[in-house]
């Protein structure tokens, strides 16, 4: 699934096919190749997106578009992400990838998705895959936490998932407003309330690292073994090919052995302070 090393540093030219406004500072871009077909990708992988004249950053693939394009959800944080998020339909973008590891297939098991904030974006392709092939999985729980009801990513899609009778969708916010009648509190608190068989479950977790630490603790307490917990790790990815070392995490390069990593393989590094 990974690109060949020979072409790994050469961006391909893509065009912005559509811009979906998700939140005031967040958009989803549909990127379509200027020529040929886009390479295959797996849920959990990322691309390097190049805003011409500004710079390049790693952005998770948040979906596969029906017309064979990539979907990327981008929040305005720094110069490059702001430039990408402000691209108009028809604008050109450089794309390298897909890179990295994907979420495990987990067929036959109960699947617990735990997402925090923008962490729902890298999980969305995996959620879509599981829901599209629902009969191959046991119980499915989607637990999503966000800061405030107004900052809820993919709200419409969450509502669609919630209407299904074969999936348990729980959403919580850290800070509620008076119109919010749902859960208030942090997303790890939803774990004891979900129904799953801890010994036959796979947990896929993505969000800010502090949130993932609390989530892992709650999963352990619920009896889910470390080797059944997968996290999407984020570090400063530059080359995405394991050459530059910017994304080093202990002995690992996140761009090569991540971003999706099995927790038991990184547990000892997880709470290590980094300079």
């Amino acid at each position: 699934m990974a690109v060949s090393r020979q072409n790994a540093l050469v961006p391909a030219l893509y065009r912005v096919g559509e811009v979906y406004r998700e939140l005031p500072d967040t958009v989803t871009l549909r990127l379509v190749p200027e020529s040929g077909r886009r390479p295959p990708c797996a849920p959990g992988q990322f691309n390097m997106l190049y805003a011409f004249g500004v710079g390049e950053i790693a952005i998770s693939i948040s979906g596969e578009a029906a017309d064979e394009g990539f979907l990327h959800t981008v929040r305005e944080v720094g110069a490059v992400s702001t430039a990408l998020a402000r691209l108009a339909v028809g604008a050109s973008v450089g794309v390298r990838g897909p890179y990295g590891t994907g979420w495990p297939a987990a067929q036959g098991a109960d699947v617990i998705f735990v997402a925090g904030g923008l962490g729902l974006a890298p999980l969305r392709p995996a959620i879509r895959r599981v829901l599209a092939e629902r009969r191959h999985y046991g119980r499915v729980a989607i637990l999503f936490g966000t800061r405030h009801p107004a900052e809820m990513l993919y709200r419409q899609e969450l509502e669609q998932w919630r209407r299904r009778l074969d999936v348990d969708v729980s959403v919580t916010v850290d800070h509620a407003d008076t119109l919010w009648h749902g859960n208030v509190g942090v997303v790890p608190a939803l774990i004891p309330r979900a129904t799953f068989d801890p010994n036959n479950s796979v947990a896929l977790v993505c969000g800010p690292e502090v949130m993932m630490r609390f989530t892992v603790s709650a999963l352990r307490e619920a009896g889910v073994p470390d080797e059944r917990v997968y996290l999407s790790m984020e570090r400063n990815m530059k080359c995405a090919t394991g050459l530059c070392g910017h994304c080093q995490f202990g002995p690992e390069f996140i761009c090569m052995t991540g971003p999706v990593m099995r927790f038991d393989r990184i547990a000892s590094l997880f709470s290590t302070r980094e300079a």
């Binding site: 500072d25 900052e151 850290d174 942090v186 790890p188 608190a189 969000g207 800010p208 502090v210 609390f214």
Partner: peptide
């Protein structure tokens, strides 16, 4: 108490 601390960290705030 731990959950309250996590809530106070405001981990989803803009970077």
């Amino acid at each position: 108490l731990h959950a309250t601390r996590l809530q106070m960290f405001d981990v989803y705030r803009r970077g």
